[in-house]
Design a protein around this nucleic acid. Sequence first.
DNA 1: TTATTAAAAGACCTTTTTGTCTTTTAATAA
DNA 2: TTATTAAAAGACAAAAAGGTCTTTTAATAA
Lengths: 153, 153
Amino acid sequence: MLSNASKYAILSTLYLAQHSNEQRKISVKEIAENIDVPNPFLAKLFQQLVRGKIISSTKGPHGGFYLSERNKKKNVLDIIDNIDGLNKLNGCFMGLHECDSTNPCPVHFIVEPFKNNLFTKFRDLTIIEFAQEISDFNTLLTLKNVNPSFKTP
Amino acid sequence: MLSNASKYAILSTLYLAQHSNEQRKISVKEIAENIDVPNPFLAKLFQQLVRGKIISSTKGPHGGFYLSERNKKKNVLDIIDNIDGLNKLNGCFMGLHECDSTNPCPVHFIVEPFKNNLFTKFRDLTIIEFAQEISDFNTLLTLKNVNPSFKTP
DNA sequence: TTATTAAAAGACCTTTTTGTCTTTTAATAA
DNA sequence: TTATTAAAAGACAAAAAGGTCTTTTAATAA
Ligand code: FES
Ligand code: FES
């Protein structure tokens, strides 16, 4: 439903929202290490997000990535749109041509409410609001294995 | 979330449930045309489903694919498991290591109820019951574009 | 103005997914 | 028993996704 690229982009942009500002810019390296995402791959994604005006960057010493005031008003759906395009998220779960209540697939009425909830969250909150919610509710923002002990009995 | 392969397999198996029995076996060709799936690709998938004992086949004249009585008691989750493995469907929407209420990602509590609903449907209904529901509610079972007029204004 | 720093650009590589084609095997009907 | 039919098997091929590496550009601090 979401590509890895989109997932990386979302998590990393939210990390920026939490930890950067115009004064404190952040390198790809720091983010890649914290989110646990391949460094050069994230660099590529960030180039694309800069071109898409989702995030900002400056080169040189103390350069790095950050969110401008305009960037902060973007939402998660803008990120997904920039990386995957919206169709991937919006299309029918079973692959039918249209996801549509008048011609529904066998799971449409299970999928539709979920998609509505998700879209509401991804569209109606700005990046900054979303990041704030993450801080408030202490949800996770890293691909690191936070509980490796469960894996090795 | 689901691969194309899984989607094809699910739709085609449900088609078998609706249209075949031990007496009337169905060729890949007929299904591929009706579901609108690439013929040789579906043939490969069906080989795998036969090995996984999800569907049955016989060669020769009037041969083809069908569901045995045992096959009819399988469920959609068995198909997904056979083709994709369950992790793909079950994993965290944002890609975190564990999808888990104690270490949730930012959208976990939106995703979890959806996954529960979906799993219930895919696990608690047999293939035959699922196919019956599709007939009862007239939901769609084809990847064909059923409403092309919307596309060309 | 020069060295340093960090992103930008783009070529390149690998793996997975998706899809095709040809040959072989098995069932059966004539 | 032979021709026919349809799946099984497996080698191939194309495209997309995922990931890496090297060189260039721009900013700035010394
Ligand atoms: S029609 Fe399949 S999810 Fe809406
Ligand atoms: S933790 Fe992400 S969906 Fe459950």
